[in-house]
Design a binder for these strands. Structure first.
Lengths: 108, 108
DNA sequence: TTCTAATGTCGCAAACATACGTCATTAATC
DNA sequence: GATTAATGACGTATGTTTGCGACATTAGAA
């Protein structure tokens, strides 16, 4: 059993994705985008109990980690779930759960 | 489309669980506990590149959200994954992924 | 071109998270 | 009972996140 020098890339990646999901506003945004076909930025901030500025920051965070994408449509910006990002999320957490789910015969 | 008054319990729950996973040290602790049958607190802080005090705080956080449990064994304390907590995590995230995974025919 | 609407960026304040040294507590050992 | 070892709790410094108003930018309408 050796001492870790630092956390590895995989652990960092899981933690970063988890951080993106660690605020209820960002969960609400993802659910909203999943339930609506055309999602204009303004619609999202009208819906959430937060200022437009704050919602804009949450959108920026979700975009920078690749869970959503934003396409300019004239004056407005249409945000959508990013299929690849969501699939990656699914995959990364699936692996983690496989790794840490205790088997019935494990002691303790 | 009505405005949310505040975030609902489900969204809060997902966010809280995600927050527990949002630091690489806590991921490393869960993986370590999954790979070792008897896990004494001191072993964990010997392993991680953090002080004993800091590790103790991460353990406290994981315990308070129910992902691990700690049983006193004389002078030492044995930490283990909490099967129910991990299953709940699995379930909650599984539901979220079902909800937000885009179907192929969805526009955008 | 000027005006308006939709949106992002900046900068600040308050709250929260992280890391760690020191101290308190408790169990086993002498 | 005194000593040592394992551990959690407390306090504190530093960094990060959140929320928001004010400003900047850009696209389309008048």
């Amino acid at each position: 059993m050796k001492k870790l020098e630092l956390f590895d890339d995989k652990q960092q990646e899981i933690a970063s994705l988890a951080k993106a999901l660690s605020h209820p506003a960002r969960i609400a945004i993802l659910q909203f985008l999943a339930s609506t076909p055309t999602c204009i930025s303004g619609d999202i901030s009208d819906y959430l109990p937060l200022s437009r500025t704050t919602v804009s920051q949450h959108l920026k965070e979700l975009k920078s980690i690749g869970l959503i994408q934003g396409d300019v449509e004239g004056l407005k910006i249409k945000y959508c779930l990013n299929k690849e990002g969501i699939e990656k999320l699914n995959h990364v957490f699936g692996n983690l759960f496989d790794e840490i789910t205790p088997s019935d015969n494990k002691i303790c």
